[in-house]
Design a protein around this nucleic acid. Structure first.
Ligand code: FES
Ligand code: FES
Lengths: 144, 144
DNA sequence: CGAAAAGCGGACCTCAATGGTCCTATTCAG
DNA sequence: CTGAATAGGACCATTGAGGTCCGCTTTTCG
């Protein structure tokens, strides 16, 4: 799996925060419960995102987390990189003299091409493209 | 790292075999030494590739491994898949009701788009594009 | 035939990363 | 001051990657 569970959690949490942005800080507990993410673990992820400036955290009563950026201004690429670090595609373990062309091996180019393609897809989407729609009206849906 | 060390080893071994194709079976020991790959480990990889029909293995004295396919007929995509299994990009751990659009979430589409892009790059190259050039003339190189 | 030279394949080991927990300290509203 | 919240460090468990070992089988050749 290229992207970890941590990424999944973080991404969904951010989606959730994007939705509540206007309504002030959301507590860790709320997010964890709604999204069914282990609270302590989510805490770590959010702390990490707070340090990177993606979310802001407020302590004390009526504290919680708020999205600190415009949803439409932050790309998937950026978010994923901030949570998981850069996506490493391939590491060649050959010694120089074993590599086909020594420093100019086609393989390196292929894999850097792969990396670029990944980045290019992920850069085309921003947080704003993903909305946490509450599935409002308790799901029995249609009419009433 | 998306592609494992195993993949690296396997890929390089195949490059090596592609080069020697005409000269009959190459022993595990030779490949392992030349490419500086742990012998026992390489053995496993080659066994795996033998089962998939990419290489053919001959037992007994004067046995070894031979490439069983036309280098230009097998894509990187196929090789990597055979060694590492399909490239899994993202697994969503949300429950259905937590997923933004329930079964039709944009996230799924983005990540499947990523997967396609990777596949498309890797499918453009075949084993024939990668040649193990022996770095003949012992490297002190230039004039002399 | 029988020994040596290969590969086969299953059991096993090790280590680092992932995923996750816990507990204490800090901060702040009321 | 007290209680509700995050911060953050220490810790733990599971998993998978990477790798080793060794006995078994097949095949060639003298
Ligand atoms: S053989 Fe590794 S990059 Fe060329
Ligand atoms: S929230 Fe996971 S795929 Fe939509």
């Amino acid at each position: 799996m290229i992207f970890s569970r941590k990424t999944d959690y973080g991404l969904r949490a951010l989606m959730y925060l994007a939705e509540r942005r206007a309504r002030g800080p959301v507590t860790l507990s709320e997010i964890a419960e709604k999204l069914m993410i282990p609270k302590a673990f989510l805490s770590k992820i959010l702390q990490q995102l707070a340090k990177k400036g993606v979310v802001r955290s407020l302590k004390g009563p009526s504290g919680g987390f708020v999205l600190a950026v415009e949803p439409s201004e932050v790309t998937l690429q950026e978010i994923l990189t901030e949570i998981d670090g850069p996506t490493r595609v391939f590491e060649c373990f050959a010694t120089e003299s074993d590599c086909t062309l020594y420093g100019d091996c086609l393989m390196r180019e292929v894999f850097s091409e792969v990396e670029d393609q990944i980045g290019s897809v992920l850069s085309r989407y921003t947080l704003a493209d993903f909305r946490y729609s509450e599935k409002q009206a308790d799901s029995t849906a249609s009419k009433a």
